[in-house]
């Protein structure tokens, strides 16, 4: 292995690690606020990428129907609650938000051929279809059992994952897709070629992480989420609704996931079930961060990316064996360092 290979591997590891880091942040956020270990995080990556690919192929993506279906389900539940509590004035806004907006989206896509739209519009449309799934999943699957144990929330999370995988296969088929690069630029470093899209992934990840940092530090919603993460009961007493916090964290997680998918689909092929493994590696990063610290989680995710890259060079058949075995001592070290005496 010469220096150039080492650098290329490092670059590859950082690129993958950047995506894992984004997912790790989303997982930490969701866990801290809702205690849900969000296994379906990866599905948003796949759905984001494949929805965009469908649009570019001139097809109506299946996620649109999923959005409409879930919107109707949410609307029915909320309307039933409104009727029971005699808050009839809320019904129009519920219906408009959950059913009206998806319907308008569907109508627009019927009228305009999506393949002819410019790329940024397609990206925005994809995000509009995938991101609302996040809060809807929270409303349907997690809000009713928000107080259950972490184990039960985890199992529900697995059930959601299984459901989404099945739907993904139905919507997008078993074969994968790629989308065109956002940029055709490339840079020459030595005699190696650095693709513009690769740089874009890293830059976009850093920008997004920065934006999240700003969100948590500076905005009222971000502060509310942090407060909920630190002390659920306390936050509720301060008037921060756990439901709002939960939905907000799921929205952010869905946004991060779908955006990651859009970012990576030009540099790799994405399949309906790609998300699980990507999400799992993000999860490893998140755990290294103790499901609490954002910077450490991001660093952990980059570490996973690098481990993966170098081990795929040295012994590709044993890549997963090496990556996941090396994770164990890291976990041990982290575990011994994050000493938390049980509350007495």
């Amino acid at each position: 292995m010469d220096l150039q290979i080492a650098l290329l591997l490092g670059q590859d590891g950082v690129t993958n690690g950047a995506v894992y880091a984004l997912l790790a942040l989303a997982l930490v956020l969701v866990f801290a606020v809702t205690r849900v270990i969000f296994i379906p995080q990866g599905e948003f990556v796949a759905f984001g990428a494949l929805t965009l690919a469908s649009l570019q192929a001139g097809k109506l993506p299946g996620t649109l129907w999923l959005l409409l279906g879930m919107g109707i389900a949410v609307a029915l539940i909320e309307i039933a609650i409104s009727v029971r509590d005699r808050h009839l004035q809320r019904i129009p806004s519920i219906a408009l938000l959950n059913v009206g907006v998806p319907l308008v989206l569907a109508g627009a896509l019927f009228v305009v051929s999506p393949a002819t739209l410019p790329l940024p519009v397609q990206v925005v449309l994809s995000l509009m279809m995938v991101v609302p799934l996040g809060p809807m999943i929270y409303r349907l699957a997690f809000q009713p059992i928000a107080e259950a144990s972490v184990l039960v929330l985890l199992i529900v999370s697995v059930a959601v994952h299984v459901t989404l995988i099945g739907l993904g296969l139905f919507f997008f088929g078993a074969e994968g897709s790629r989308t065109p690069a956002f940029t055709d630029m490339s840079f020459e470093i030595g005699d190696a070629l650095l693709q513009g899209q690769t740089v874009l992934v890293v830059v976009a990840s850093v920008v997004l992480i920065g934006a999240l940092f700003f969100f948590f530090e500076r905005t009222i919603y971000g502060k509310a989420l942090r407060a909920t993460a630190m002390n659920r009961t306390g936050a509720r007493l301060m008037g921060i609704s756990a439901t709002v916090a939960g939905k907000l964290s799921f929205t952010l997680a869905a946004l991060i996931g779908a955006f990651s998918g859009v970012l990576i689909s030009p540099i790799t092929t994405v399949y309906y079930d790609s998300g699980f493994l990507i999400g799992l590696k993000g999860f490893v990063g998140a755990i290294i961060g103790g499901l609490a610290s954002y910077p450490v989680a991001a660093a952990g995710a980059i570490l996973v990316g690098l481990l993966e890259s170098y081990s795929s060079f040295w012994a590709s058949a044993f890549k997963e064996v090496i990556v996941f075995t090396l994770i164990i001592p890291v976990l041990l070290w982290r575990s011994l360092n994050t000493r938390h005496v049980e509350e007495e």
């Binding site: 591997l9 590859d12 690129t15 790799t268 493994l277 890259s309 795929s312 040295w314 890549k319």
Partner: peptide, 8 residues
């Protein structure tokens, strides 16, 4: 489902 085969 690998996203990268750069090493190989």
């Amino acid at each position: 489902a690998d996203t990268s085969v750069t090493g190989q």
